[in-house]
Amino acid sequence: APQGAGLGFRELACDDPETEHVALIAVDYLNKHLLQGFRQILNQIDKVKVWSRRPFGEVYELEIDTLETTCHALDPTPLANCSVRQQAEHAVEGDCDFHILKQDGQFRVLHAQCHSTPDSAEDVRKFCPRCPILIRFNDTNVVHTVKTALAAFNAQNNGTYFKLVEISRAQNVPFPVSTLVEFVIAATDCTGQEVTDPAKCNLLAEKQYGFCKATLIHRLGGEEVSVACKLFQTQPQPANANPAGPAPTVGQAAPVAPPAGPPESVVV
């Protein structure tokens, strides 16, 4: 560093409009690069430093906190229309570090790293003892609820067979004892009636994803599942894909074995 160059950075207030502008660019970048889970919204700017960059430009070093919204990463709803996941629904916070270069009036993200952390179950119970608490996706009840809900959805949907792409959220509800799940599905090249082995069904070249919310109520006499899915517009295949070639198989989709039998009571 040249002598007398000072600290090499300038301080900026976290609530300065310039900082907020850069923070919103960071959140937009984050949401455009999310591969799974829920879109994020800016909650607080923790720290900011603006470094001089040689020969030109400035680098914003930014620490921000985000909150999970109720819109899935694949949901095309504008972020402004997505509501923040409330604490009573067991909120999830994102803690992010960004380096963003500003040069010639243009912003470019150089580095992005985020960690998400759910609120503690103790905190949720403190102000809402009966609120549903997040549980792990490999929980037996979660796996069973997702399988049952997907089977119920496919049974009611005589056309395309949808398969599971991702479990996005799962909660235990104490009263009535039930399991809440949110998951992503995708259309396949199979039809509902012909499916014997879902693993052999391939996602369509023009991906059609859907986002489902399901509840399975555990009763003494059996169980009752309800599921509602929102299908998103089809997404064209990437420009570098060979349109004349066979429909690609996507390995990301977790194969879902069909349930052993129909659910005892199904409401769709």
Binding site: E11, L12, A13, C14, D15, T19, E20, I41, L42, N43, Q44, I45, D46, K47, V48, D65, L67, V84, Q87, A91, E93, D119, D123
Partner: peptide, 27 residues
């Protein structure tokens, strides 16, 4: 030492630069 009017310290508390405002809630 008691500060005199006009001292730099007598201008009142300076708002901290960071962290910024919480838009929704902290967890």
């Amino acid at each position: 030492k008691v500060g005199q009017p006009g001292d730099a310290g007598a201008a009142g508390p300076v708002a901290p630069l960071c962290p910024g405002r919480v838009r929704y809630f902290k967890i």
